[in-house]
Design a protein around this nucleic acid. Sequence first.
DNA 1: CGGGGTGTCT
DNA 2: AGACACC
Length: 696
Amino acid sequence: MEEELSEWKNSFVDSAALFSTSSVASGSAVKASSAPSHRVILHFDLDCFYAQVEMIRNPALRCVPLGVQQKYIIVTSNYMARGRGVTKLMSVSDAKEKCPELVLVNGEDLTHYREMSYKVTELLMSYCPLVERLGFDENFMDVTEMVEQKLKQTAEPGCFSFKGRVYNHSSADAKASDHPRLALGSHIAAELREAVRGKLGLTGCAGIATNKLLAKLVSGTFKPNQQTVLLQENVGDIMGCLSGLRKVPGVGHQTAKKLQSLGLVSVKDLQVYPLNDLAKQFGGPTAQRLKNLVLGVDDSPVTPSGAPQSLSDEDSFKKMSSTKEVVEKIQQLLSSLVERMQKDGRQPQTFRLTIRRFTTTNKWFSRESRQCPIPNSIGQKISSENREEAVVQLVSMAMKLFQKMVDSSADFHLTLINVCFSNLQTRGAAVSGRGAITSFFTQNASPRKPHLLPSQNQDDSPRNAGGRLDTQIRISPQKKHVTSKSSTSSEGASHGFKWKQDSVMEENQTTACCSEVSCPDATANTAADQLPPDVDPEVFKLLPEEIQKELLSPLFLNSLSSYHLVSGVTRKPTNKSSDSERIGHPANTLDTSNRATTMSQPAGTSGSHGENVMEGDELPFPQPSDCKFPGNVDPEVFSELPPDVQRELMSEWKQEKLILKTPSSRKPGGGSVSKDRKSAGKSSQANNLFKYFKPS
DNA sequence: CGGGGTGTCT
DNA sequence: AGACACC
């Protein structure tokens, strides 16, 4: 069987046209021969995306070297900065060294990037619904159908031309008439890039080829704001030019390492390596896929992304080692996440908490997570009006999950916390309040994966090229083929979606795992009177008992715990240099507005370095009875926290007071995070799924 | 190694 | 349910 492959391996295997597996034949009426012999796939990649967004937000940044910073690294920079040696993922210190005039903006809040990202996807979708997102700044698009239509309309055969560059073809020596589909694809790409620039003000690159792998590889060949076509005859060239296997999309760090251990380093190495041997290490399917990739073969379809499958929020930091900080951080993350979730309009059925522990070795992965179902009662609150309560109860759930991973009675050291909502259900139908009704609509549905039909592989599949939407199960961009742009027809055309998902409604399924993770209420106020500062009382009272206890305990253990609890005390003195000043003048401003992590400045409490933190009328020692919560602590919440959590919090608050330690408190009022959303919208309801695409 | 996200394999 | 891999 191997001989077979080697046979045509080197030529343009992408053909696939060979077997019209399409089976279409049976089709009635049919678009018979419409199944294109090969697809036309576009890949769009926005130029230094985050930096572009920041420059749009603040045009003054256009004429200065700009770096977008997240924690200690520059995640991207504009071309001015790149010209001075600033590269992606460079540490801030290295970047400043290379380019002292570098202007920095904090890019930890992804809100604006996310919004702009969806606008781009939406715009592309208005031309053709087959758009797949890859991260925030890349989109694949299958324009095979558009091309075929234009092809039919094109009378003269000799009138084709390429827009933009053609890979490995110096000038216009490439004869477009030999590649009419790709030529037409290049015109579509040019038109779309122009639309993106005209309507959204963003520039980017595009690659035009016969599959996603190739389109992505070729899109980056001419960098800023250009587009490139890859002809089949040059597939071998582009693959061969890759400097290493790691450069092949689909081959990540781990895979590259494994391959290297087999002595495979270059694309060529893998191309000639026996499939059988490869299969021993990776298994048949993966081995074949890897082989295909280095040959430039990729039959994976462009799968419409639709609305996100999950919403998450996370923060990383140098060190977090107290339960109190954990509670606060989780509350902060949840506040913004719940707000986003509400705007989304769907209702999450699953909650997940992820952490990363500090470990000298393997510092960079090792994430652990625990998840559990979200009781319907909470789900409702998220979307309907009173988010506050939802947050409070979710914090409680989160802490229970936290306890499953971390023994807070022992030392721990976290470097990241992530909260995530998934299993998002479209609202719509009532959710049975009471369990009784056994309304079980099978609700099959996982809309996503239009499972590929079995078999078939190697080389591009022509299969769903033409009638794609008709035969597949996918969630389907409605409005069958929109084809002609011009849209106009209201909603449907310009948005093309309707991710409806069969409203569901399970009856209570709160059962599942997390037995006790669900309901709040109980856990009466174990120590509602002695809440730890900074912890929203509402939150506290709902926290798992154990946590409550823990948070409160130090109060009693007092002197003993003083030791290892002090960890946070060592903080350096205010490390924020300049307060954010908006870039007023080009050159030197450095926007250090770090809302970053741990060091947030409470504003309300404690002036900059102050001693206080206490309300003034407190005694140096905690008094079980009159202990006040820090301004942002809602007693009610506190009381619902698990007892041990309460205890630990108490103890830590006490520590802070006694030591005059930093106020690492959250803002009062439940710590909403996001900045101002202008929306005055109160309506709450009327959420529509297209918010991801709406200009807002 | 940022902040998100998605999909696959156990 | 959770770890991994990849972008």
